[in-house]
């Protein structure tokens, strides 16, 4: 092969691989991406039942009902609208009423959501960022700094 042919082979191979990768990415973007919604979003955007999504908000106070086996029902609210979530399995350590939560699963019907995973994060001050943002949008965010902040004010070591 001449130099030119060799170079062309290389370029053609590179373009082929990149083309395939691009195709895969575009295909996956269409099928395997999950949107995040708050209960209000779901109503406002008229999300069709059967859609897979991530639902975020606060666990409504007094809504957690533990059934037989490991079935749990609770309501996720953004204080404006709320949606009932059904879930089977162990809840995360930090799952509590009044705390932020993100549930991933399928919208079954109006106001009813079937979750296959429930996330709360590993920190007592934590709220999932999506939840915090959507609460901020609705003016419900209360900034709670660290409750147990150390007394006194920091000074630099060189002083």
């Amino acid at each position: 092969m001449t130099r030119k042919q060799r170079r062309l082979t290389l370029i053609a191979a590179a373009l082929a691989v990149l083309g395939v990768a691009l195709g895969l990415v575009l295909f996956a973007m269409r099928d395997s991406i999950v949107f995040f919604y708050s209960p209000t979003d779901i109503e406002a955007k008229a999300v069709a039942p059967g859609t897979r999504l991530r639902l975020g908000g606060l666990v409504a106070a007094g809504s957690v009902v533990k059934g037989e086996g490991q079935n749990v029902t609770f309501a996720v609210t953004d204080t404006n609208r709320s949606i009932t979530v059904r879930y089977t399995g162990l809840l995360p350590d930090l799952f509590r009423e009044g705390q932020g939560v993100v549930a991933e699963g399928v919208l079954e019907g109006p106001g009813l959501f079937r979750a296959d995973s429930v996330l709360a994060k590993h920190d007592e001050n934590y709220m999932p960022r999506e939840v915090a943002d959507s609460l901020k949008e609705q003016g419900l965010w209360q900034h709670s700094g660290k409750a147990d902040a150390p007394a006194g004010s920091p000074t630099t070591a060189s002083e």
Binding site: A21, L24, V25, F27, A28, M29, D31, S32, I33, V34, F35, F36, R54, E104, E130, D133
Partner: peptide, 14 residues
């Protein structure tokens, strides 16, 4: 402003 999550299905497919 749309929030999406890209997880295992995406990476399995690509």
């Amino acid at each position: 402003g749309a929030k999406i999550s890209v997880g295992e299905p995406f990476f399995n497919a690509t």
